[in-house]
Each structure stands twice: as C-alpha cells, then as structure tokens.
C-alpha cells in the first residue's frame, strides 16, 4: 500500500505555491495536513504527479479575530481549533466540532483549510462551513479571490477551487447577537467518519421567536447539504419542541441520502431527523441564553 511516484516541492510563499501549481498543471495537488490525501494516495485512488506542500509557507498558521469574524489560516490544525481560546470565544462551534474529527493524532496534522478543499461528504467541516456562511480566500495566478461556502462545494471530493489556486484562509463570521449554533453526529465508533452529522444555527428575535435558522448535514449524499427551508419554516415561530420536531423531520425528508456498507438511505434519513432535532434544540437553548444575558 504505497503511493505511486510523485514529485514534491515545499515553497516558502503563497506565490511560490501558486507558481508551482501553475507549472505542474492539472496533475498537481496541494498538500496541507495530508490526512485525507495521503491515504487516498496509499490506496492508489489518487495519483497526483506533483505535491505542493503549503506547510513551509510563513503566516498560514495564524488564527486572527477580524471584527466579529474569525480568520483561520490554511495550515491551522483541527487540534488547534479545539484548544485555541480565541476560537472558543469568537467561533465556539469550531471548537466544539474539532474533537469530532477523527482521532487526536490525525487532528494534530489535519487542517480546516485542507478539509474544506478536499470536500469529503462525510467530513465535518464542509457542513459547518455551509451552516456558518464561511468564506474562503484562494490565491491563483491572477491574484486572490473569495468563495462563499455556498459556492465552494461542487460534488464528491470536488470544489470550485481551480487546480492552480490554493486556499489560504477561512473567514468564519460571528453568529451575531441572540445567535446559537450546535453540532452533533452519529458514527459507528468514536472518531470514524460519521454516518450522518448535522449542524444547526438559530437567531432569535427580541421576543424569543425565531428570526433565522438553518441546518446542514453531512453523510447524506455526494456533498454536504445546507437546508435553509428550515429557517423559512421556523421564522416568526416560538421554537418549541413541536415546531423543532416538525421542521427537523421535514428537513430530513428533503434529503436524498445513499446506501452504503454501514447504513441504508432510510436509516440516514432517520438519523438526520434526530440530529436536526437535537442540534436545533441545543442551538435554540444557546440562543435563548444569549437573549437572557
């Protein structure tokens, strides 16, 4: 189980990375933590001819607070997100989700940016990115551009990042006042890719009714799914148990999940309803706590 041969380069600047990508052509891959890419290559399911390592680029490992937003550099690891106090303060959902990602040894190498660019439909971060309206910055030969999460995830292991572009940063907007978010997943074993996961985000108005809401899912198809209809269905309503249960079931019914070795589509839809209900309930409780404070 060894990867096919490839060439490796580790530029020390973003420009150098882009230059290497341009030169190598479509066969090149950016290497960040490598925790998803390298196993695929070991199984010879992926065989890039060139790996361009971003690990030597200065400054990509920063976590910064910009206004209400958190900006996470491309090489910041899951482990760092799980323990950085600024992350916990500004984007607590990231800190909460980090421990769901694989196991500690993988979290010590794998990165948020790498996970978004890899876009595994069973990974946590694409679903969280959709939920939180995350914006990624990518740099290419003609300069930098921003891609909203809604426009980023194309299909299974595919994003709208061009082959000669590299993801450099992830901007996570704050939830705003009276906002709450939550995440949960079900996996066969702790640390496995989830069978299904869900995130929920709720903002309440001054009266405690729902101002806006969304849920997102992972493990239910070829890419993570954001369901905004939940927001429309809940808007203006008090988020009681019955309302949450109703919209959670409806959201799950809109999914088109798949059968695989570990679960059936019907089972996934059922888990999705359960997880949407659980996460919406928690998100509402957190938003309510915000209102109360």
């Amino acid at each position: 189980m060894k990867p096919a041969p490839f060439a490796y380069v580790a530029p020390d600047s973003v420009e150098g990375v882009v230059g290497a990508l341009v030169e190598a052509g479509d066969d090149a891959k950016v290497l960040a933590g490598g925790q998803s890419l390298l196993p695929l290559m070991a199984l010879r399911l992926g065989r890039p001819s060139v790996l361009v390592d971003v690990g030597r680029v200065d400054g990509l490992d920063r976590v910064e607070v910009v206004g209400d937003d958190l900006v996470v550099g491309a090489t910041v690891t899951h482990a760092r997100l799980g323990r950085d106090p600024e992350v916990a303060r500004v984007a607590p959902l990231l800190a909460e989700v980090a421990p769901f990602v694989a196991h500690a040894a993988v979290r010590n190498r794998g990165t948020l940016g790498g996970s978004l660019a890899h876009n595994d439909p069973a990974a946590e971060w694409p679903a969280v990115a959709l939920l939180l309206d995350v914006v990624v910055t990518v740099q290419g030969p003609t300069g930098a551009r921003e891609i909203a999460a809604a426009d980023l995830f194309e299909s299974y292991l595919t994003t709208t990042i061009e082959p000669d572009e590299v993801l450099t940063a992830v901007r996570v907007p704050g939830l705003g006042p009276r906002g709450g978010a939550a995440f949960d997943e079900v996996s066969r074993r702790a640390g496995d890719f989830a069978l299904v996961g869900a995130g929920a985000r709720v903002t309440l108005d001054d009266d405690g009714a729902v101002a806006s809401a969304a849920v997102s899912f992972l493990g239910v198809g070829s890419t993570a799914v954001l369901d905004a209809t939940v927001g429309a269905d809940l808007a203006g309503r008090p988020p009681d148990e019955a309302a949450i249960d109703e919209v959670a079931r409806a959201a799950a019914a809109r999914l088109d999940p798949h059968d695989d070795l570990h679960a059936t589509a019907a089972y996934r839809r059922r888990l999705a309803a359960t997880l949407a209900r659980r996460t919406l309930t928690t998100a509402v409780a957190r938003a309510s706590a915000e209102v109360a404070s």
Partner: peptide
C-alpha cells in the same frame, strides 16, 4: 494499516502524536 486508522505507527512530532504513515518523510524536515 498504512492508511491512518490503526495507530500502530504513531510517533511524536514536536511532542505531539502523529501517524507516521500519514506523513511524508520530507514533511518532517
């Protein structure tokens, strides 16, 4: 396992555990 699941190959990299099968030798430079 050579695909990052079993943990037998775990070593410490700058003091923290990592899978040595999921890391290129050159990344340890």
């Amino acid at each position: 396992c050579e695909h990052g699941v079993c943990g037998s190959c775990t070593v410490l990299l700058d003091g923290v555990p990592v899978r040595s099968c999921l890391m290129l030798a050159v990344q340890a430079e």
